[in-house]
Every structure is written in C-alpha cells, then in structure tokens.
C-alpha cells in the first residue's frame, strides 16, 4: 500500500520535474483554460448576485427599516396618548378634589346654620321658661307673705283672746303689718 502510493507519487513528481520546475502557476499552457472558466464563473456569480441575491436582500433591509420606522412612530403615538391620558386623569383628580372641598364647605355651612337656628330656638325657649319660673316664684313669694301675715294676725288675735285681752282687730293688723315690714 505504502510502496504503491510512493510509486505513484514518484511518477507524478517525475512528470512535474519534466514539465516545469518551480511554480505550476506559471505554466502558460493552462492559462487559457483557467481564464475561460474564471470568466464563466464570474459572469455566473455576477448574475446570481445582481439578479437575485442583492435585490432580495435590499428589499428585506428596506422592509425592515420601514417596519422599524413604523414601530417607532407607533410607539411615539402611544406615548403621546399615554401622556394625554395621564393629563386627563390628573385633571379629573383635581376636579374631584375641588368638588369634594366644595361639598365639605357647603355641608359645613349648612350644619352651622342648622346648629345656630337650633341654638337660638333653645335659647329663646330657655328664656321663656326662666321668665315663667320667675313669675311663678314671685307669685309664690307674694302668696307666702300674705299667708304669713294672715296667720300672724289670726295667731295674734287668738293669743290676745287667750290672754284675756280685748281684741282690737285694727290695732292687731297694724301691729302685724308693722312687724312684717320689719
């Protein structure tokens, strides 16, 4: 096996030595073949690239660019919308807050008014009751003084009678009255 391949190599090497010592690239007799196939390959490559590959890739890249631009625009729009929504929300919040304050104020005023009215009414009632009571007390006091005077007169008459004295109504009354004035 090894000797066989060595033999083949040796024969090939012998041919090479006979043909050209050094660089096979400089063997002019193959240039025609190389250049012909090179031109064929170049034209094929050019046609593949310019007719199919490059327009396709250019289209894909353009489409991607378009998609990205669209997406960015959409994102901007959504951002704007979000800002608007936020502003609207803030406004609604502020409105609600001021409205709540108004309601609180109104309710407070109403309650105060009710309270004042009730107080006034109560005061008036109290005053009336107090006046009535005073009157009653004064009456009672007057009645009491009168009753006391009468009792004193009767008592004095009885005492005088019991002691055997002559009862002089007028003088007794005068005396009791003078005492009552005290």
């Amino acid at each position: 096996m090894a000797t066989e391949s060595h033999g083949a190599e040796a024969v090939a090497a012998g041919h090479a030595a006979a043909e050209s010592a050094g660089m096979p690239q400089l063997a002019v007799e193959t240039f025609g073949n190389q250049i012909f196939w090179l031109l064929v390959a170049l034209v094929a490559t050019y046609l593949i690239l310019s007719r199919v590959a490059l327009p396709r890739i250019a289209a894909v890249l353009a489409e991607r660019q378009g998609t990205i631009t669209n997406d960015i625009a959409a994102a901007e729009e959504l951002k704007l919308k979000a800002k608007e929504a936020e502003a609207a929300y803030e406004k609604a919040l502020a409105d609600a807050r001021s409205q709540a304050n108004e309601i609180v104020e109104a309710t407070r005023a109403e309650i105060k008014a009710d309270l004042d009215a009730a107080l006034e009414k109560a005061d008036a009632e109290i005053a009336a009751k107090a006046a009535e009571s005073e009157k009653a007390i004064a009456e009672i006091r007057a009645n009491a003084a009168e009753s006391a005077a009468e009792v004193a007169k009767d008592t004095a008459k009885e005492l005088i009678a019991a002691l055997g004295g002559e009862v002089d109504g007028r003088s007794v009354t005068a005396a009791v009255n003078a005492r009552m004035k005290g």
Partner: peptide, 10 residues
Amino acid sequence: VFHPMDQFKV
C-alpha cells in the same frame, strides 16, 4: 518528500 507546489497544478 517535498512537493509543496503540486497542489497548484491545473
């Protein structure tokens, strides 16, 4: 056995 240039033969 050096044949480094054989690979370039057409």
